[in-house]
Structures are given as structure tokens and as C-alpha cells.
Write a protein that binds this DNA or RNA. Sequence first.
DNA 1: TAGATTGTTAATCGATTAACAATC
DNA 2: TAGATTGTTAATCGATTAACAATC
Lengths: 209, 209
Amino acid sequence: MQIPKPVIRRLPVYLIRVQEMIQEGVEWISSHDMAEALGFTSSTVRQDLSYLSFSGISKRGYEAAKLEAALTDVLGGDEATHVIIIGAGNLGCAIAMNKEFSARGFEIRGIFDADDGLQGTTVGTMCVQGMHELRPFVKRQCIEIGIIAVPAQAAQEVADKLIKAGVQGLLNLACAHLVTPPDIPVVHARLSTSLQELKCEIQIANKLD
Amino acid sequence: MQIPKPVIRRLPVYLIRVQEMIQEGVEWISSHDMAEALGFTSSTVRQDLSYLSFSGISKRGYEAAKLEAALTDVLGGDEATHVIIIGAGNLGCAIAMNKEFSARGFEIRGIFDADDGLQGTTVGTMCVQGMHELRPFVKRQCIEIGIIAVPAQAAQEVADKLIKAGVQGLLNLACAHLVTPPDIPVVHARLSTSLQELKCEIQIANKLD
DNA sequence: TAGATTGTTAATCGATTAACAATC
DNA sequence: TAGATTGTTAATCGATTAACAATC
């Protein structure tokens, strides 16, 4: 593995911050500025950014525009990554309608649901497709990522189907554990898990008093 | 800090798995079973579970029902945690309608939006409120957590208002970095960040070939 | 009892931080 | 030039894993 996981998790955060600073008109960013804004140490920032194919300059720091480009590149490059959503419930539809993703290099190409009643209905500019259409669609449209937005009990089955259909990675929103082959990365983005994590941290913070 | 962060992040995952196993009728769970299912080592499992106020039994393992109770307890207990959502866009509304949270101990009590046009509209059983109602509402309803589901440029302002209003922690869905006092924990649950992380892992997996 | 599994200590591994020579 | 900031090495810190006595 080239870049350690903790670093990978921080890279999108740097990108967010760089873009904010570019908005503010900043042209050069030092590791100290970045560290202070994000609550890291400047050592961590320099160490992390050394994984990029791009260097800072002594005395001045990192050129904001070039840093943005290098981060964008390592996080997926400029070509849009094709994504589909499985599950046309509230959450699936909300994601399908979200315009933020295209700005970050992700293009939602389709939405699927196992429920016959939902098939054929429209979500934004897309038409909900049935699961039997999944496999040919993934091949035809070169879909790289599948977002799992179905109830927990259906999640593993959907994951299996997505992998069989040929996606290269999964974003799991379902409150279920997924078993996948080692070459298929999974990132979990479960809201209820995040809420539990937060609640746990609140309790610990309260105990310190 | 009592429980290390990596452990806190794994606790909800254990809970998910325990509940799945209880569904399957399992009564005793060994650290090895758990480790194999989740892709951890059994050492990690035992080490993590030792933070709970509950012990396993030699030769048999952990009693499933008691393990579930202990995990539930450390992640927030049985009393529902009161939550509000700021932002009545697609994502905010989808979360408001989600029934999964109540099963995990979180009760969504209100939804707010700065947009006059949305105020007064209904989302599920709730009525969208204006930001000036935030502060009294948080006090009155003992709101502990605020979920930020607004556009990135409004996120910091909303965070400040939530903290002033008295919430104890923030769940941030916005693509922005937030500055908060040290006693207010923030958990980020940004979909686009997770997608970028996933994309980065896919690229690394592909390079290994 | 013998075997399996825990809880915990010690060893290893990896990530973060500190320090500093190189450099613009 | 002098000062500031990088990239990188070495030191520290913390998390994970291995090992094993205790035990049911």
C-alpha cells in the first residue's frame, strides 16, 4: 500500500481547506497555516503532503493552485468517476439529487431498486432501473463505484451483485457489515454509526468535568 | 480520554455484528468468531471489549445479549438522544424521514432552515422552523446533537449558532472544515469525502497489479 | 480432567511529532 | 545576507498483535 490509510483520510480535508483558502484569495500556504486551521501539527502536514507528486518551496510554502491540483489528482483526477446508487428510498434519492458530487469529480449515472413499484419512476433526470439491468449497465457505462443505500438486511446481497457486475469499490450507507474480496475496497459512511461515535465522545467529554 | 479513538470507531461495528448474530440465534460469541467476521485480529477484539463494563467467560466467550447491552450502553444507553437537523434540503429531509435512527437510540426532534420559503413546510411529522427558533428549542427539548446538512459556505455559521444554542456535539455533513471549541466534539460524515477516500483506495489497489 | 478462551502483559509495528540541515 | 520554511531523518508515542498464565 503506497499511502497509509490515516493519510488518505486527511487528503480530502486538505483539499477542502485549500479550496476555501483559494476562495479567500490566498496564493501561498505554509504547513503551519494549514496545521493551525485543521488542528494538526505542521510536521503531519508536511509528511502527508510529501506523498503528493509536488513540492513546496522553502520560505514560501505550497503554491495554493498547484497544491489543489496535486490533491485533486491523487484523489481521483479530473476525469469524472462514474457512480451508481442502489436503493431509491429517501436517502438514495437525496444523494442522486445532490449537485455537490460533480464538483468533486463524481458523476451519478444511474439509480436502481429491487422494488417493482419504484422502477420506472424518475429521480431528478434519472429513471429508476431494476436489478436485472445492473450488470449490463455497469459494463456499458463503465461504472466504478456502487453506493449501497438499501435496508441493512439487503446490503450484503446488493454488495455481491455490485461486485459481480464489475464495480471496483463500494460506498456503504447501510447499517450492516459487508464481506468483500480483498481487492474491492469498501468505505462505510453510515450516519447512525457516526452518531453513535459522536455520542460516545460527548459522554467522554462530559466525564472529564 | 478514556477510550482511544480507534476503539470508539470500532464499537458501533461490533454492535452491528452482535445484533446480526443475535438475529441468527447465536448466544455466545468468541473473540475469534467476531474477529473473523469483521477482519480484525482476536487480540484487537479482546482488547477493545475490555473497555466495556462487562467480561467474557473463559472457554465460552461473550454472552451475546449481554455484549449487546454493554455496547449499547457505552454508545449512548437506552435513553433516546435528542437530535435536530439544520438544513431542510434533500439530504436533511431524507435524514429526518429515516426510521433507522430511533432503533439506534437517536430521536430527531426538529428540523430548521434559514430559507423563509421552507419554513412552515412539513417534513414527515415535523414542521420546518426558522433559525431564530433554534435557541429556545434546544433548551426546551434538551437537544444534545445538531446535524449540519446545509451548503458548505453556511456550515461554520450554523455550527456557531448550534454551539451557542447549547448542543453538545455536531455531526457535519457539509463539505467544509469546522472550527469548534475543544469541548464540543465534531464527527464528519461527508459523502463526497468518503467517495474521494474510496476512489483513492481503488487507484492504489489498481496500481498493485 | 483436558481443552478452549479469556484478560492482560510484553513485543512489535506504524503513525505522529520533533529536530535540523538544506534552501530559497 | 538573514530569516523562514521545506523535506527528511530520528525520536517518541500510541495502537495492534503475540504470547501466555488464569480459568471455566
